[in-house]
Design a protein around this nucleic acid. Structure first.
Lengths: 254, 254
DNA sequence: AATTGACTTTGACGTTACGTAAAGGTGTAT
DNA sequence: ATACACCTTTACGTAACGTCAAAGTCAATT
């Protein structure tokens, strides 16, 4: 497959000017130029452009991108896995912003109070991107738990009391699950405790409880990215672990 | 609460230069300047800055933001609801990109084939942001259904055949559900058809089917933003409608 | 009372990642 | 042969700041 500059631009959704610029700064040279000076791109360039766009999407400067993709030791597969992780982080940030909007709406309606600090939660992503280690783990964890809060609360018209309870439950579940995960045994006491907490957490959202539905949801946690990403955030494999624990808890597996 | 330029910058995670620039272009003037020319910001400015940052996050130019926030008819509450919607759209886009990475990884490992078009799926958001009407509905719908595909396929190691089947089922469900929604009757034939399609769709993901789990999932569709946003995308209220249809279908309600 | 150091001010020029013409050559379909 | 949709380079424009520089302000400490 060979592409002229217009075709490639169309394929990737970017302008021809951008492609010429990328050529100019040496970030993406065409495979060859034909007899009349036209830029011709091949499959290798298509893949490289894709990589470039991933980096660009993640806020990396073209200067840095150049260093990365022209590095002879560049590992495309590894880069893709990093992209994946960064994109998941970005989604967490987005969730935080959405939670912020929700809170702000509730605030304007007088339903809750909101500190000025809270009003800017989720905007500091660049600070986080820039120097992740500066604040490091603590902020990550804080943001993590708050992302959940958002997904949970407000959805149902809970009372403040119910909200506090479910928040506490969530924290407890997170802790217990992390502990249990370390044991590696989904049938163990810790894991079964986590499954029980999960059931209690569920009953805040479901009007009726059934083992089948519980087990089904556990499977969803593994199958659906949106959930899996959340549970696997701290420790990859946690989603599967929770599923197994719940399957055992509900008697669907032993 | 009064803030100097440094304090406000710190609060919002932006530089003092940015705040001076926003003053310069008339987008955010300080509440007052003190006797020695220092900019002093009050609570009103804090809220306005939050709005500005939301718009900025969504890719709106400062020029446009100026028009919006300085408009005497500016409705802050309405703006917040729009922010919310746009942020949800942005998350859909992100999901698409994540699906793209996943696919690309699978592709480099030789597990699936991937067209060049697919390699750039999810990157065209700016085209969408810029001129939404240019391509309008069609692209929206296309991206919408593709967002699902992502959530579904690849997660399980489906064969190409299974993948095609589930894709077809998804489309069928979407159409039938949209038709049914128009009737307004979750007990009607159309709606029950949709519920049945949903069951068949489910069986691709769950090893066992139970009415309880099905009904539970339906409730989740309403309670969890991540799902609700997807079903309500075209027609608000669709998530609730689908839940009701399924509750009737499973005999949990009549 | 003087000094230090962290803050503030207004210029003003620099930067990134392109957009937008301008002036001209190329390819092919009518 | 001419229309039209491509392509080229050159070059200036732009948005949203970053980054000095030179100078005034404020509170605390010597």
């Amino acid at each position: 497959m060979e592409y002229t500059i217009n075709k490639l631009g169309h394929l990737a959704g970017i302008s021809t000017r951008t492609l010429r610029y990328y050529d100019e700064i040496g970030i993406l040279k065409p495979a060859r130029v034909n007899s009349s000076g036209y830029r011709i791109y091949g499959p290798k360039e298509v893949d490289c452009l894709q990589q470039i766009l991933f980096y660009r999407e993640l806020g990396v400067s073209l200067d840095q991108i150049k260093n990365i993709v022209t590095d002879p030791a560049f590992d495309g597969a590894k880069a893709l896995r990093e992209h994946r992780e960064k994109l998941l982080e970005k989604r967490q940030q987005l969730d935080l912003l959405i939670a912020n909007v929700d809170k702000t709406i509730a605030h304007t309606e007088g339903r809750i109070t909101m500190s000025n600090e809270e009003k800017f939660e989720g905007f500091k992503q660049k600070m986080i991107e820039d120097n992740e280690k500066k604040y490091g783990q603590e902020i990550r964890q804080k943001y993590g738990t708050e992302t959940v809060e958002k997904a949970n609360a407000k959805v149902k018209n809970m009372t403040q009391e119910q909200y506090d309870e479910v928040t506490a439950l969530t924290e407890q579940l997170t802790e217990t699950l992390a502990e249990a995960f370390k044991t590696g045994n989904p049938a163990g006491e810790q894991a079964q405790n986590a499954a029980d907490l999960h059931k209690r957490w569920l009953t805040y959202y479901w009007d009726h409880y059934s083992k089948e539905a519980h087990a089904g949801l556990a499977q969803m946690y593994v199958d659906d990215e949106r959930f899996k990403a959340y549970y696997d955030k701290e420790q990859p494999g946690t989603a599967e672990f929770l599923r197994d624990a719940i399957l055992i808890y509900t008697g669907m597996k032993r």
